[in-house]
Deep mutational scan, measured.
Amino acid sequence: ELVLALYDYQEKSPREVTMKKGDILTLLNSTNKDWWKVEVNDRQGFVPASYVKKLD
């Protein structure tokens, strides 16, 4: 499943990933309501769920 980055996000820990507004990311896990695991540029990590939106 793919998600769209709604905002820029700068990683604050090694478990997170940086994304730019408009990026298309692969959603790996959305079981946590606050932090979703995504893959971007061959890196996996977490981003705030409120910063991304699922693409239909």
Rank of each mutant, 00 (worst) to 15 (best):
V38D: 00
V3T: 03
F46W: 15
Y7D: 07
P14G: 09
K33C: 10
E39F: 09
E1I: 15
T31P: 04
L2W: 14
T26V: 15
V3D: 00
M19E: 01
A49I: 03
N29I: 08
W35H: 03
D8N: 08
V47H: 00
P14E: 13
A5C: 12
R15E: 11
S13A: 09
T18Q: 04
L2Q: 10
W36F: 07
P14W: 10
V38P: 01
W35Y: 07
L4H: 05
L55M: 10
D8S: 09
L28I: 14
K33H: 12
V17P: 01
K37R: 11
T18H: 05
L28N: 03
V3A: 12
T18D: 03
K21L: 05
S50I: 10
W36N: 01
Y9I: 02
D23A: 09
E39H: 08
M19F: 10
G45A: 03
N41V: 11
N41M: 13
L28S: 03
N41E: 12
S13P: 04
G22Y: 05
V38R: 00
L2M: 11
K54N: 06
E39M: 13
D42Q: 12
T26Q: 12
L6F: 03
N41H: 15
S13K: 07
T31E: 14
F46C: 12
T26I: 15
Q44M: 11
V17C: 10
G22F: 05
K37E: 13
Y51E: 02
K33G: 10
P48N: 02
F46H: 05
P48I: 02
Y9R: 02
S13M: 08
L27N: 01
K54H: 09
A49Y: 03
A5H: 01
V38H: 00
S50G: 11
F46R: 04
K37G: 05
V38S: 01
D56G: 13
E1R: 14
Q44I: 14
Y7C: 14
K54C: 09
K21N: 04
R43D: 04
V17S: 02
R15K: 11
L6C: 07
V3I: 08
L27K: 02
K21Y: 04
D56V: 12
L2D: 04
L27A: 02
A49L: 02
S13Q: 08
N41G: 15
K12A: 11
V52S: 01
L4D: 00
A5N: 00
V40M: 15
Y51N: 04
D42A: 11
Y9D: 00
K21E: 07
N32S: 10
V3P: 00
Q10R: 12
D8H: 06
S30C: 11
T31H: 11
S50H: 12
D56C: 14
P14H: 10
D23W: 13
K53G: 09
D23C: 08
A49N: 03
D23R: 04
E11M: 13
Q44D: 07
S50F: 09
N32T: 06
S50R: 14
K33T: 11
L6H: 03
I24C: 06
V52P: 01
K53F: 10
E16F: 07
Q44R: 11
K54V: 12
T26S: 10
K54A: 08
L55F: 10
W36E: 00
Y9Q: 00
W36Y: 07
K12V: 08
S30P: 06
D56S: 13
S50Y: 09
N41K: 14
L6N: 03
Y9A: 00
L2V: 09
T26H: 12
D34K: 13
Q44Y: 07
K54L: 13
K54I: 14
K53Y: 10
N32W: 08
E16P: 05
R15T: 11
D42I: 06
D42S: 13
D34S: 12
L27T: 02
F46V: 07
A49T: 05
L25M: 13
L4G: 03
T26A: 12
D56N: 14
K53R: 13
Y7M: 11
K12W: 05
E1V: 14
L27C: 08
I24S: 03
K33N: 12
P14D: 12
E16D: 06
K37T: 07
L6E: 04
K21W: 03
Y9V: 01
V40I: 15
N29H: 08
R43Q: 08
S30I: 07
L4C: 10
E39S: 13
E1M: 14
K21F: 05
D8A: 07
M19I: 14
G22S: 03
T31S: 15
V52C: 14
E1W: 14
E1F: 13
D42G: 15
V38E: 00
M19G: 00
A49R: 11
D34R: 13
N29D: 15
P48Q: 02
R43Y: 04
L55V: 11
V17I: 14
L25P: 02
V52M: 06
L4K: 08
E11F: 06
E39A: 13
V40T: 15
P14S: 12
A5P: 00
K12G: 08
A5G: 03
K54Y: 09
D8W: 04
Y51V: 05
N32V: 05
D34G: 08
Q44A: 12
E11P: 15
S30M: 09
I24P: 02
E11C: 13
V47G: 01
K12I: 07
V3S: 04
E39K: 12
G45D: 01
L4A: 07
A49G: 04
K20N: 08
D8Q: 04
D56H: 13
L6I: 10
N32F: 09
F46P: 01
K53T: 14
Q44V: 14
D8T: 06
Q10T: 15
A49F: 03
P48K: 04
D8E: 05
K20L: 08
L28W: 06
M19P: 01
Q10A: 13
D34F: 15
L28M: 08
D34H: 15
L28E: 01
Y7E: 10
D8C: 06
P14N: 11
Q10L: 13
G45W: 04
L25W: 03
L28K: 06
K21T: 06
L27F: 03
R43F: 05
N29K: 07
V52K: 00
D34E: 12
N41L: 13
K21S: 08
L4Y: 12
N32C: 10
K53A: 12
S50A: 13
T26W: 14
D34P: 02
N32Y: 08
T31W: 10
L2C: 10
Q10M: 12
L4M: 14
V52G: 01
V3M: 07
R43C: 06
W35L: 03
D56W: 11
G22K: 02
V17L: 15
A49P: 05
N32G: 10
K20C: 11
S50N: 12
L55W: 08
P14A: 12
A49D: 02
F46G: 01
K12H: 09
W36L: 04
E16W: 04
V17D: 01
E39Y: 09
E1K: 12
P48F: 03
V38A: 02
V38C: 05
S13Y: 07
Q10Y: 15
N41I: 12
V38Q: 00
P48T: 01
N32H: 11
T31M: 10
Y9M: 01
D42R: 11
S30H: 09
L27P: 00
A5V: 10
L4E: 11
V3N: 00
A5W: 01
E16I: 04
F46T: 03
V38K: 00
T26E: 08
R15V: 10
L27E: 00
K12T: 12
W35V: 03
L25S: 02
K54P: 10
W35G: 01
K20D: 04
G45H: 02
N32K: 07
L2Y: 15
E1S: 13
D8L: 02
W36I: 05
D8F: 04
T31A: 12
K21C: 09
P48W: 03
V52E: 01
V47F: 00
L28A: 03
Y9L: 01
P48M: 04
F46I: 07
